[in-house]
Computed example of a mutant assay.
Amino acid sequence: MKPIIRVFCLASALWPILSMPVANADPSPAKFSRELLLNKQVSLPSKEVDTKVIRVHFPKGYKTPLHTHEGPGPRFVLKGKLKIEDNGQTNVFGPGQVFWETGAEMTVENVGKGEAEIIIFEMAPANSDAH
């Protein structure tokens, strides 16, 4: 059989398999998305504000002592499950959730099955010594 005829026969035999749709294939390309996680009106503590972004790791079962931070702000849970007691209220947050820390006395307890991690966005009055 001539090579061109063999290629044609092979292509004809494989065409039904090659033209089948792939399971779970998404023909549309990935799209940009935007999701509002927290919307809060804030009165800034002063005209100049120091902002910090802090990553915090909590070992399994760890609970912070009662404490405060320099300023309030949103907190984003990256992984784990955290029980937050802040300003007299108790809530549990998991990955992808955002909560507002008031700046009042609070505790954080890792109540999940493994390590937990959050990102703290803190807004505090500017330190006049730093400028």
Rank of each mutant, 00 (worst) to 15 (best):
M1Y: 02
M1W: 07
M1F: 12
K2C: 05
P3M: 02
I4T: 10
I4E: 10
R6N: 13
V7I: 09
V7T: 01
L10K: 05
S12M: 12
A13I: 14
L14H: 06
W15M: 14
P16Y: 07
L18W: 11
L18T: 13
S19E: 00
S19P: 05
A23C: 08
N24E: 11
P27D: 15
S28I: 07
A30V: 11
A30T: 04
K31L: 08
F32S: 05
R34W: 11
E35H: 01
L36H: 00
L37A: 00
L38Q: 07
N39G: 15
K40I: 03
V42T: 04
S46Q: 09
S46W: 01
E48H: 08
E48G: 12
E48M: 14
E48S: 14
D50G: 04
T51N: 00
K52P: 00
K52Q: 05
V53P: 01
V53Y: 00
I54E: 03
I54Y: 03
H57S: 09
H57P: 13
G61T: 06
Y62Q: 11
K63H: 01
T64V: 09
P65H: 12
T68E: 03
T68D: 02
H69T: 09
H69S: 03
E70M: 01
P72W: 04
P72R: 03
G73C: 00
G73A: 02
V77W: 03
K79F: 10
G80S: 01
G80M: 10
K81E: 10
K81G: 02
L82W: 02
L82P: 00
I84S: 06
I84T: 02
E85H: 14
N87F: 12
N87R: 14
N87D: 07
N87A: 13
G88L: 11
Q89V: 01
Q89W: 06
T90C: 10
V92L: 14
V92W: 02
P95W: 08
V98K: 01
V98Q: 05
V98M: 13
V98N: 10
F99N: 05
T102L: 05
T102P: 08
T102F: 14
G103H: 07
A104D: 07
A104R: 14
T107A: 02
V108N: 05
N110G: 11
V111K: 11
K113D: 15
K113T: 15
K113V: 15
G114W: 06
G114E: 13
E115W: 05
E115G: 06
E115F: 15
A116P: 07
I118E: 15
I119M: 08
I120N: 07
F121S: 00
E122R: 07
M123D: 04
A124G: 12
A124I: 10
P125T: 14
A126Y: 04
S128D: 13
S128L: 12
S128P: 09
S128E: 10
D129Y: 07
D129H: 04
D129I: 09
A130Y: 14
A130L: 15
